[in-house]
Design a protein around this nucleic acid. Structure first.
Lengths: 107, 107
DNA sequence: TCCATTGTTAAACAATTATCAAAATGATAT
DNA sequence: ATATCATTTTGATAATTGTTTAACAATGGA
């Protein structure tokens, strides 16, 4: 199970419109990843700003990078995403997990 | 599906150690909720600070409050949590969702 | 080698955030 | 009413954050 501090770091990284958009895109792209420049183009973000956000997401271990020639490919780290989801739903309703999937009074 | 702005707001609310702890506690407690004072006691947070964080979580619609006598009970809003989880995993690997549950090269 | 391309880093600035102490609100019981 | 309990609001302060501009690497082709 992830430690609270790491969860906070990951959530903080995602809690910003541009970074959430970047991450959302990388999740949809899948493990192959996508070059930084293509992300800049798709999301209309300046290279410097994008680089800043990539760094934040990398530092939170939400994404990973790999160099290929002149390009740097970024990809989502699905393990960490699953860890966050687990953390958020942990001990849901004191263990009665299904109850939490229903909006209201089932617990 | 939740709008990005609401997701950002919710993630920002959770991206703070004290608030994540509060939320984590409320999720475990379930829909009945728990009085503010008990949260303060369990998490050792001053009333003023706790109130500030409750407000942030409420504003993000992650939690809800209900008054009962002198006490105010807070409870997690599970619908919104499920919305966040959905958003984060949306279009995972271009729709090949199961692949994302495995850490690496399955997409 | 020289150059264009791709991406990162540094410095500066405005804006937002978390915490505390103190005062204020709201609800109940006596 | 008045006292007490539970919680919120206010005001102040220190710390963090996102963006821009400009300058800086690193890669690969002519």
């Amino acid at each position: 199970m992830m430690k609270p501090a790491q969860v906070v770091k990951a959530l903080a990284a995602l809690a910003q419109p541009t970074r959430l958009a970047i991450y959302h895109l990388l999740v949809a792209i899948g493990p192959e990843g996508i070059a930084a420049g293509q992300v800049a183009e798709k999301l209309k973000v300046s290279p410097a700003t994008l680089s800043f956000h990539f760094k934040t997401l990398c530092h939170a271990e939400l994404i990973e990078s790999r160099q290929d020639g002149r390009f740097i490919y970024y990809a989502a780290n699905f393990e960490v995403m699953n860890g966050i989801v687990e953390y958020l739903t942990e001990n849901c309703c004191g263990g009665n997990a299904e109850a939490c999937k229903v909006p209201s009074k089932k617990c």
